[in-house]
């Protein structure tokens, strides 16, 4: 490992990182809102190689009752990593780290929510890390806030999280797993972009005061960048329906004249058939009348006439 550590260059002199990013570059972020049918709100975030699912239930009744808060809703947050989320199988029982992050994220989401609107109830936030690659808590809170918004829970603001790090004395944004482990420091924050307030700030490792300031200066615009992506993701979900509806309307408008024509043709064809039938019926009835007349006039030669008429009728039908 020691040799490997020297081999992996975390950051070059030009400020290019091991995966080709520059110092202030974030990894690629994409969201999918409303992925779960059962949950009131949900969001799947893909942040670089992180894949995290957040589900929100509530506000709903809280059991056990003694945990109910008389003046506000209780936020019950659960951060959990799947056994397959990391290279070495993670044991399924919740460990210290998971419990800590659960508590932390719940407390970071609290100032963003109007909890006083739902006294005695609970808002459940479940965060499941499906694939981890550094910076999961930032990605998790970003996803959780979208899931909360998707559930229609009143919020002061969305929450966006980004981490900064210290790689060989250079401050960089959004550490991945290798940088997190090999680098000198990790500084995740969660931020309310419109209120301009920090709701979560942790730091791990070494930062000089100047580095700390630099990190925060870089983090705030980064969080705002993430916020814009969040906003787009959640409005897209509904504007997609809008677009689909618009397409339907356009398609219908185009299809209508064609349909009308078809219908008209069909009805014409039907009418023609009916007319033919009527005409046939008319012939028959006339023939019948003639029959009766003839019957009345010539009784003895009845059979012959009948035969003749029958043959005539057959001919008519064939025609």
């Amino acid at each position: 490992m020691a040799k490997n550590k020297e081999e992996t260059v975390l950051i070059t002199k030009d400020g290019i990182r091991h995966d080709g990013r520059k110092r202030e570059d974030l990894r690629e972020i994409s969201f999918e809102v409303g992925v779960l049918d059962r949950a009131d709100g949900s969001c799947l975030i893909e942040w670089g190689r992180n894949k995290i699912l957040a589900a929100v239930y509530g506000p709903r009744e809280l059991h056990p009752k003694h945990m109910q808060m008389p003046s506000q809703a209780y936020i019950r947050c659960e951060y959990r990593m799947a056994t397959f989320s990391v290279p070495d199988r993670k044991r399924p029982a919740p460990n210290r780290r998971e419990k800590e992050i659960s508590k932390l994220l719940g407390e970071a989401l609290d100032p963003a929510l109007f909890t006083y609107l739902y006294p005695r109830s609970v808002i459940d936030v479940f965060i499941e890390v499906l694939q981890a690659d550094g910076g999961t808590r930032c990605a998790a809170i970003t996803a959780a806030s979208l899931a909360l918004a998707d559930a229609g829970i009143p919020m002061r603001d969305l929450v966006s999280g980004v981490a900064a790090g210290n790689l060989s004395g250079k401050v960089v944004l959004d550490l991945d797993d290798i940088e997190d482990k090999e680098g000198e420091g990790d500084l995740p924050i969660a931020y309310l972009p419109n209120l301009e307030k920090v709701v979560l700030l942790q730091s791990d490792g070494i930062f000089t005061p100047d580095q700390y300031k630099e990190a925060l200066d870089m983090l705030v615009p980064a969080c705002k960048k993430v916020y814009q992506l969040q906003r787009k993701a959640i409005t897209d979900k509904y504007s997609q329906i809008n677009d689909a509806v618009q397409k339907d309307i356009d398609a219908e408008a185009k299809a209508k004249p064609a349909k009308d024509k078809k219908k008209a043709d069909e009805s014409k064809a039907k009418d023609d058939k009916k007319d033919k039938k009527k005409a046939d019926d008319g012939k028959k009835s006339k023939a019948d009348k003639e029959d009766k007349k003839k019957k009345g006039l010539k009784k003895p030669s009845k059979k012959k006439d009948d035969k003749k008429q029958a043959s005539k009728e057959k001919e008519a039908k064939k025609d």
Binding site: A112, A149, P193, N194, Q230, I234
Partner: peptide, 8 residues
């Protein structure tokens, strides 16, 4: 028009 939480 559509708004999101926190939007002025």
């Amino acid at each position: 028009s559509m708004v999101t939480p926190g939007e002025v």
